[in-house]
Structures are given as C-alpha cells and as structure tokens.
Design a protein around this nucleic acid. Structure first.
Length: 821
DNA sequence: TTACAGCCCAA
DNA sequence: TTGGGC
DNA sequence: GTAA
C-alpha cells in the first residue's frame, strides 16, 4: 500500500469501505502486512465498521442509541468496547476476524437475492421495540432485496440483482453483509434521480451496497436525497407528490453508512437548503436500536407512501417498484412481474399493507410524518468529535469529486438478457471471466483466426466518415433496404435515451456505432460479427446481438415508457434548454409545457421563454420551398443594401434536404478578408428585415453572426405556395446569418453544410494529419500544449476554396448532397 | 488513462 | 464558469 | 461507449 496519502488513496476511499466490509483477502493482507499504513488510511472507515460490528453482533441487545445524535451514537458504540477514539486500533484488531467471517458468510449469499431471509431470523432475536414494528418487520424483511429495479442510468438500468451478479469479481465486495445493510428497506429517490454525476453515482452505489434501493418514482420512496445544489423550492413540487418521505440532502446517506445506522434525518446538517422549518418532533420514544429504527421507519412510512400503489410490496419488492404515474403502471408492472421475484414476498407483505389505509390522503405536511428514524437526535448533536470525522470525510469527497472515477460497476449490463441464444458459448466464457482483455483476445481469434486485435484494422482513411458519406437518396434508400435497419432503429432509441440523460460520450459512441452499422451491406447478427466493426465494442456488439435475437432491448422499453423520460425529451426540445436545465426543471416538478407556462421556473432565461412560447413552431420542419422563399426575400433586401453581397442557403438545405430544421444563411462578399467588413451590412440587413416584419426575434448577435427568428410574410407565402395553401398565421422559424469573408468561404461552407458527423469526421481527420480545421480554414503545424490545448494557431493552409480543403486533406470531393453520414 | 471539435455568446 | 447552440 |  502506498504510503503517500494522495490520489490513489483517496480515490480508493470508497472501495476501501468495501474492502473493509468484505475484508477481502486483499484487504486482509494489507492489514496484516502493514497495519499502520492501512489503519491510517482507513481510519474513518475502520471506526465505523467497528462500531457496526459491535452494534449488530455482540452488542446487539444494546438498545439505547436513543436520541444520541450521530455523535453520541458513535460514541456509544465505541464506548462499549473501548471508549476513546484512540483505542480504535484495538477495536480494529478485534473486529477484523468478525468482519472477515461475516463477510464470508455474506458473500456466499450475496448472489442470492433471497439471502435476506437470514435477516428475518436475526431480527426476531432483537428485542422488539414495539409490537407493531415487529409485525411490520416480519412482513417487510423478506422482500427487500432482490430485484429491485435500479434506475436507468447511463450504463443501463439493471436491476440490482443483476448488478450483484456481476460484481462477483473484484476484490471489493459489492454488497455488504446482510447484517450490515443498514439501508435495507430504505428506498431512495435521488434528485436528480440519475447517477450521471460521479459523486452521486458513488453515493448511489454505496447506498445499494448497504441495502438501499434506488427507486425510479418518488411515490415509492422512503427517502428522498436532494442534490446539495438544489434548494427546497427547486424540488418542492416533486416532494409534494410524496408525503411522509424523509427528505435529506446529499450528506445523509454516506453519513449513515459511516455511522452504520440510520441517522436522524431531521438534523440540521441533512436539511435541504431552504427547507421549510419542518417541525421535527423528535420522537418521544426512539427507543429502538439501530435495526429497529429502520423498521419502525418503514412502519410509519409505508402506509403513506403507498397511496398510489397500495399493493406494491413494501420497499423491497423490486420490480413492482413504482411508477410515479398510475397510468404507466401497466408497463412497469409487466416488467416487474416478469422478473418474478416477488411473489412469496408479496403474500407475506400484503396483510400488513392492506391494513394500512391505502388511500390515505397524505397529510400534506411532510414535516410532521417525519420518521424519527433512528434516533431523533438533536440537530446540534453533530457534536464536535463527529464533526471532525465527518468533515474529513466530506473534505475527502469534495477534494476528489472531480476525479474521474472508475466506473467499475458498469459491467456488461445486459448480457444476461441476451443469453438464451446462440453465442452462448462465447458469452458464457466471457461471463465466467469478464476480463475484458481476455475476452477480446479470445473472441477475435475465434471469429477471425489470428489477428488478435487485428480485427478492426481498417484503412486509415476509411475510419473517417467523411470518406464514406452518402447522398440523401442513398441514405433513405439504405434506410429501408439496410439489413440492419431494425437494429439501428433500436440503437438509435438507446442513443436518444443517453442524450436525454445527458451522457454525452455514450451518445456519441452510439452515434458512431450506428453510423458504422448503417454502412454494413449485410445484416449483422452476432456479437462477434459486430465486434469486428469499427466503433463497435464489446458492449454494443452484445446489444446488437440481443436486439437481433430478441428484437428488442429490455432496458429500452423500460426507459422509454417512463413518463419522466418523455417529459425530459419534451423539455430538451425547447430552444435554449439543454440537459442540465431540463433535468432541473424536471426535478422541480414540471412535466409539461403547460406546467412551464403556468409557473415558469425562476431560472428560465429569455431564450428559453421564447423557445417555450414558440415551441410548436420552432419544432416544425421548414419545407424546402419556404426556406427558399425566405432566402429570396432576404437576398433581395441585401441586394438593395449592397449589390455585391452574396447569400447562400446552407445547412441541410444545401445538402438537398426536403425540409430543414432552421435556415442558415451565409453572407459574404467578394474581396473580404474578415467578417468584420460585413458587419455593417448585416446590421442594415437585420434592421431592414425587422422593419418588414420578417425578423421577429433576436436570440443572439454579435461577432460574425446573428441568430433569431423569422416568418415568411403573407405576401411571399402566397407567392410561394399560392392561395390554395392557406395558413392561419405565419410560423416562426429559426434563422441564422453567418458572416463569412471570402477568405474563409470554403471552410465556412464545409462547416455550415455539414452534416455534423461529416464535419466532425473531417476535423478529426485533419487533426490526425497534424492540421486543424475549423469554420475559418484549414491550418497546419498546430502546436498543442499539454493535452491538446492549442498553443499556436498554426499556419493557414486554405480557407477560401472548399474543394482545395478536401484535396489537402486527401478526401475525395463530395457534393453537398453526398455529405449525409 | 485519455480523448472524443472547437468556437462564440449569454447569463 | 456554466449552459447552450452551431 | 470506443479507441488509442
């Protein structure tokens, strides 16, 4: 173990938790070999793990944990074995064996969802806090684990069970011993409810390891964890739909794990900023022990949360999980049903459940119903000592929140689903040993003898889409004819999904893979086959096979049937709204455009407002004829101002598309070397067009461009479409003016003709050849500093002539109509 | 482990 | 600096 | 997610 207390150390922090709990051999060795270092490194963790040990096992009967704030809690735990923090080492030593044992025990069951059962037995042993609680417990305990659905996330939505399965490998146990799953029975709804943010991902992961469930709908949550960046007002709406839920900030879960107990959620430090002063009535008789508290919590909460789906099995029942919206329940239900884990559980569960008023109108007050989970401790309870450790912990997190974390968990999501068929052989192989490298090495040889990684060797130039563009016709033709069309269709949806959840890189990866697939003359049926293609790795290859064999991807069904997802897509369609904003609005409870219109989010920008009000118009395709008409209009106006001005309709129009999303007009003039020379013209032009009522809104202006909206006046409309094609009103269109000096015309044409993929590809090719292509020109000898940061502009090689740029790059000329990638 | 295009505007 | 668009 |  490295002594330097640095990066690796901190990054490893969470894994350390794992190591501790599971105390894998690795961990053990480390411990044995270098106790000092190890201890130092895992100080906090050790302390907590120790405490839990004591609590759950030897000290089980120790009920008190009363209202000691976390701090006291901690203390108490410690005090039992050894009072002062200093004695930690001793504790650790003692605890180790236990930990190992329990870990071993847990591991064996880890893979079995039903492993919970032990808990049932365990619990009874504990003095029951109150009768009801016991009852509840017996009912609930069994259910929890299994196949709770985990949220769709960037890597896919796999049920925890699946996750667990995969997690077998690493040294770090992915699930903590049942006895330590302090979050069991806790269903968490995160806001935002995704694991895109690295830190949240970590939290979610940890929560799951400790038995917590990640739920998709707030309706089935027992706890709502709100991003620290959000204020209460941001999430107010969402919370309204879930009364009786414990609402806490980001710090809560990890603290619970650290202290091995469900902490009092009402403490000040877990308050969501701006949260109304909830009258926390510290429950008079907290009495229960850590375990109990958990249950008592469920007891209380359960009835309330379930108003929508009363029958939903308690927290745990996985799939039945939730559907925030009643209507959608159908799909989800089916889904869950399939997973079929729940049955027995449900039965057990129901009685208690039904007894509780399903319909119970939520008492609106969330403050009240709060579950004084463990210890209704006092806010101030975050006593000094704890505070220290907490702050260490927090500091650590903050310090490294930006580090790219290993996403170890990602794994191959769906393999299991696709398994049933053919390539079972390989798959099983790979499953047994997920080592990606081995797999790759193995696979390739099979399908294609020899070349280990030669499989993907493709001519350099062929790797760039710009060398493979097609025409619109060829594209559409290949769309229907393409043997991979169905597969592409599904992948495209997945791609869209990732766009929605704001996973930029996965989105682009899918785009590339799709582009590759689209070009295949034959139908790709197997994983091996797909894997050989460029831009298609093991994972997408596996998905392709699944799609082909089952003609669907489970996760996709799941993802797209989610109402939230639909709202997300809706919001993203609003001009000026990107993923962060869309998610934020969603978190604030908005679901429809009407919601936004009715109560505009406080952070809505003018652009977004415009985008919202003209959402319908701006999302309507612009017929080619209309674009042409507008261009003609503008051209005429420009000619009046400056006869030498030239306007060209770019974008998809130039590529021959029958309709466009917006209108791109490139404004230029012979003899110009800089866009600045055209600014006066643009200003005049814009003013003139505004006067004519053509330009109706300005979105951005400055520099060498103008972005805004326009409409085709009635007169021109009639001229273009005739009186027979009436319209009630002009439709707003997005229009961009781009000032381009003659010297940059060629590069600008490329840039503004697209399509994106084609452009990116061209730029990428340029960079591989030591050049740089942007909208101004093609440069060479670009100096890049550390990690691609451009240091030198480089020498302009060509900017004026579009064809020349192609030539220099060694790319065969392609007409605009052939640049559909 | 790192890049995946790069630039400009708005707030 | 972040979000967004191109 | 893929490739280098």
């Amino acid at each position: 173990m490295d002594t330097d207390t640095t990066l690796s150390e901190k990054v490893a922090f969470f894994d350390d938790l794992d190591a501790l709990n599971g105390l894998s051999d690795e961990g053990k060795d480390a411990f044995d070999s270098d106790e000092q270092e190890f201890r130092k490194k895992f100080k906090v963790v050790f302390a907590s793990s120790t405490s839990s040990k004591t609590t759950s096992q030897s000290t089980a009967p120790l009920p008190p944990l009363k209202r000691p704030g976390p701090s006291q809690n901690l203390r108490r735990t410690f005090s039992a074995p050894t009072p002062a923090p200093k004695s930690r080492s001793a504790i650790i030593i003692e605890a180790t064996p236990d930990a190992r044992n329990s870990a071993a025990a847990a591991n064996t069951t880890a893979m079995d969802p039903t492993s919970d059962s032990p808990v049932v037995k365990e619990t009874p042993a504990v003095p029951s806090p109150r009768p009801s609680a016991l009852l509840q417990r017996s009912a609930t305990v069994p259910l929890p684990l299994p196949r709770q659905l985990s949220l769709p996330d960037e890597k896919g939505d796999q049920p925890p069970s699946a996750t667990m399965k995969k997690r077998k490998r690493g040294s770090s146990a992915k699930t903590v011993p049942v006895s330590e799953q302090i979050l069991k029975g806790v269903s968490i709804y995160w806001i935002p409810n995704d694991d895109i943010a690295p830190m949240r991902k970590l939290r979610i992961k940890k929560a799951q390891e400790y038995g917590g469930h990640w739920v998709r709908g707030i309706a089935s949550a027992t706890h709502v964890v709100v991003d620290n960046r959000l204020e209460y007002k941001d999430v107010e709406k969402v919370l309204k739909s879930a009364s009786g839920v414990v609402v806490v900030n980001e710090d809560y879960i990890l603290d619970c794990i650290t202290y091995r107990a469900l902490l009092n959620s009402s403490q000040q430090r877990y308050k969501v900023s701006g949260f109304p002063i909830a009258t926390e009535n510290p429950e008079p008789a907290p009495a229960s022990q850590s375990n109990d508290s958990e249950w008592s919590l469920q007891l209380k909460e359960a009835p309330k949360m379930r108003r929508k789906r009363d029958l939903v099995p308690q927290t745990g029942t996985p799939p039945a999980e939730e559907s925030p919206q009643p209507e959608s329940s159908g799909d989800l239900d089916n889904l869950s049903t399939n997973s079929g884990t729940a049955d027995p559980v449900d039965i057990v569960n129901y009685p208690p459940q039904s007894s509780s008023p399903v319909e119970q109108p939520d008492p609106g007050e969330q403050g009240e119903p709060f579950i004084p989970s463990l210890d209704p401790s006092h806010p101030n309870s975050a006593a000094p000592d704890i505070q220290d450790e907490l702050s260490d912990y927090i500091k650590l997190m903050l310090e490294y929140k930006d580090l790219p974390l290993d996403g170890d968990d990602d794994d191959d999501d769906d393999d299991q689903s696709s398994k049933d068929n053919q390539s079972v052989t390989y798959i099983s192989d790979s499953e047994s040993d997920p080592g990606s490298e081995d797999e790759r090495a193995k696979k390739k040889p099979h399908s294609k003898p020899a070349n280990t990684r030669k499989g993907k060797n493709i001519a350099f130039e062929d790797r760039f889409a710009c060398n493979r563009g097609g025409t619109l016709a060829s594209k559409s033709a290949s769309q229907d004819a393409n043997p991979n069309a169905p597969t592409i269709q599904v992948l495209q949806q997945l791609c869209d999904y990732y766009t929605r959840v704001n996973d930029h890189w996965r989105t682009t990866a899918y785009r590339k893979a799709i582009a590759t697939l689209r070009r295949q003359p034959t139908k790709i049926r197997t994983e091996d086959e797909a894997f050989l293609l460029p831009n298609i790795g093991r994972r997408i290859a596996a998905k392709i096979e699944e799609i082909v064999s089952t003609s669907a991807l489970r996760r996709l069904t799941y993802a797209t049937s989610d109402p939230l997802d639909r709202s997300l897509a809706l919001f993203l369609g609003i001009y000026g709204v990107g993923p962060p904003t869309a998610h934020r609005w969603l978190a604030q409870g908005h679901r429809t455009l009407s919601d936004l219109l009715a109560s505009p989010p406080p952070d809505m920008t003018p652009h977004q407002r415009l985008g919202l009000h003209h959402h319908a118009d701006l999302n309507t395709r612009i017929p080619r004829a209309e674009a042409a008409a507008i261009a003609a209009l503008v051209r005429a106006e420009a000619a009046a101002l400056d006869p030498a001005a030239e306007l060209l309709l770019g974008g998809s129009y130039r590529r021959g598309a029958p309709s466009s999303g917006d209108i791109d007009l490139i404004v230029t003039r012979r003899g110009t070397a800089s866009a600045d020379e055209l600014v006066p013209l643009l200003e005049d032009l814009v003013r003139a067009l505004e006067r004519k009522g053509v330009l109706v809104a300005t979105l951005a202006e400055g520099g060498s461009k103008w972005h805004g909206c326009c409409v085709l006046p009635d007169e021109e409309y009639v001229a273009a479409f005739g009186r027979e094609a009436p319209r009630e009103r002009p439709v707003w269109r997005r229009i961009d003016f781009l000032l381009v000096p003659e010297a940059e015309y060629g590069a600008a044409l490329i840039y503004f003709t697209g399509n994106d993929i084609f452009n990116r590809s061209l730029r990428l090719l340029a960079s591989k050849k030591g050049m740089r292509l942007n909208q101004r020109g093609l440069y060479r000898e670009v100096m890049r500093g550390r990690n691609r940061v451009k240091v030198t502009e480089g020498e302009l090689v060509e900017g004026r002539d579009e064809r020349r740029i192609f030539e220099i790059l060694g790319v065969k000329w392609r007409e605009p109509g052939e640049r559909w990638c």
